[in-house]
Nucleic acid binder design. Structure first.
Length: 476
DNA sequence: TGAAATGTTGGGGCG
DNA sequence: ACGCCCCAACATTTC
């Protein structure tokens, strides 16, 4: 009787293009697919929106496994202890997994591998979630890249694509009984209150594939322009699927490039999309090289920033009641759907950090809790980018004007109308700055500032000067 | 993957 | 016909 192998799923919730799955099949042994619910898997508990997603994605994975004569064994508790325990219980010879690259997860996996080895078992880790393993893309001097463009050049130059693999048709499950929790017992779906009614997503491998197909058919052709337009469906919306490993980033990149090769879309469009995948990659590699990225300013002078503990401002920002329509639209889209358009993410982040002078970590924490695509590396990297404190960050004086950003990227105001319905009747020329609208225009639109919609909580012009002042004081 | 202030240019209205 | 002013449009500089 061959000893089984444990196939430990973490953030690689798919069966196709999955190196650990492939290794499990090739072992010829019975396979025990495992998921361990561990609050500390990534070094901090995952956010509420991510829990919602995870719940659905685990159900999808479990169903896909059952179709293949297998099942997903669910355990909860300390991941290291649970994996060791299951290995003992089942006499498994080997634990197969796709590596997590968050520093604490990496360290935990290393400890686990040692302890497995002590009991004569093997641990095998693969890269199933990134284009290239962190550390494998380096400058000529052997250092990690700190600037995106040269990083991307080196990435396309050096990274070897993972071969594409179909999901296995069968996965042999051991005959012995294995105790397991149910997915529902993990309590991942929100209760009291369940705010997820507006979430319109299909987590899981099939949902990811459908999302990619939709993107290739409908949006890739105009990606370079429309990706910045929150009033259009111009982005891929793949981010949560990528975060949970429901799709291989190589598959997305190859599919876009293949569309360009066929002549369906211009090469520039496909490369623009590939560059966004490369940003995700850049963040992950940066986090590996600089483990403090989520908590500490990459440029240390930013730790002297005179942040304001503006509790009212933070609350207005979270709830989408700042009085700046584009900011409020974004924050409400986030709360309602668990996602926000990328252009608007930059605008709301700039508003929190620079207009309100609130510590970027405050925004990072809110995004971590509310985004279905919350990712430790991307979230930290992007917040530090906006703050100006990060590697290859926006220059400190780049302060987004929420009005002109709205006029530029949501010219007709459709995005604002959708998410800030109390402004829906305002004409396009004033919808991004209702306080400048003539009284009769406001009246006709049923808007009473300070009553039906807030007045701006700060004056952007004055706030901008205050931020420049504070930021200048750091340069000594 | 800015914005605002400041500088320059050139067309048109007008005396 | 000419110079002058106005100002939009664009370019440059600065934060």
């Amino acid at each position: 009787m061959t000893a089984p192998v444990i196939l430990w799923f973490r953030r690689d919730l798919r069966l196709a293009d999955n190196p650990a799955v492939e290794a499990a099949v090739q072992s010829g042994a019975p396979v025990i697919p495992l998921y361990v619910s561990d609050e500390g898997l990534e070094g901090r508990p995952i956010g509420a929106a991510s829990r919602w997603w995870l719940d659905k994605s685990l159900h999808a994975l479990a169903a896909d496994l059952e179709q293949r004569g297998s099942r997903l064994v669910i355990r909860s508790g300390d991941a290291e202890a649970e994996v060791l325990r299951l290995a003992e219980e089942t006499g498994a010879s080997c634990v197969l997994m796709n590596r997590l690259f968050e520093p604490e997860a990496w360290e935990r996996d290393r400890r686990l591998a040692e302890r497995l080895k002590e009991t004569g078992r093997e641990a095998r880790g693969f890269n199933g979630t990134l284009l290239a393993a962190p550390g494998s893309v380096q400058t000529k001097a052997g250092d990690p890249f700190k600037v995106f463009t040269p990083f991307m050049r080196a990435l396309w130059d050096q990274a070897r694509a993972r071969p594409s693999r179909q999901a296995p048709e069968r996965l042999p499950f051991p005959e012995a009984a294995i105790g397991a929790d149910s997915i529902d017992s993990l309590g991942l779906h929100p209760r009291k209150p369940d705010w997820s009614g507006g979430f319109d997503w299909t987590p899981g491998e099939a949902g990811a594939a459908a999302t990619l197909d939709r993107f290739l058919d409908e949006a890739l052709g105009a990606y370079a322009e429309d990706r910045d337009r929150p009033d259009r469906e111009g982005t891929s919306r793949l981010s949560p699927h990528l975060h949970f490993g429901e799709i291989d980033p190589w598959r997305a990149v190859h599919a876009a490039r293949a569309a360009a090769e066929r002549g369906d879309v211009a090469h520039g469009q496909a490369e623009k999309f590939a560059a966004e995948i490369a940003w995700r990659e850049f963040s992950a590699h940066l986090l590996c090289a600089f483990p403090n990225l989520p908590t500490k300013a990459f440029r240390p002078e930013f730790d002297r920033m005179p942040w304001r503990n503006d509790l009212e401002g933070i609350e207005a920002w979270r709830r989408g009641r700042t009085g700046y329509p584009l900011v409020d639209a974004g924050m409400r889209q986030l709360w309602t759907t668990g996602w926000m358009h990328n252009r608007v993410r930059m605008v709301v982040a700039s508003f929190l950090i620079k207009d309100l002078l609130v510590d970027w970590r405050e925004g990072e924490a809110w995004f971590w809790d509310t985004l279905v695509d919350a990712d430790l590396a991307s979230n930290a990297q992007n917040w530090q980018w906006t703050a100006g404190s990060g590697a290859d960050a926006a220059p400190y004086f780049r302060i987004y004007n929420p009005v002109s950003q709205g006029e530029k990227f949501d010219p007709k105001g459709d995005y604002v109308r959708r998410w800030v319905p109390e402004l829906a009747k305002l004409p396009a020329d004033v919808i991004h700055a209702p306080w400048k609208a003539p009284a009769d225009v406001l009246r006709r639109a049923g808007v009473e500032l300070g009553v039906t919609y807030p007045k701006p909580i700060v004056d952007h012009g004055a706030a901008r000067l205050r931020a420049l002042d504070a930021l200048k004081s750091l340069r000594t």
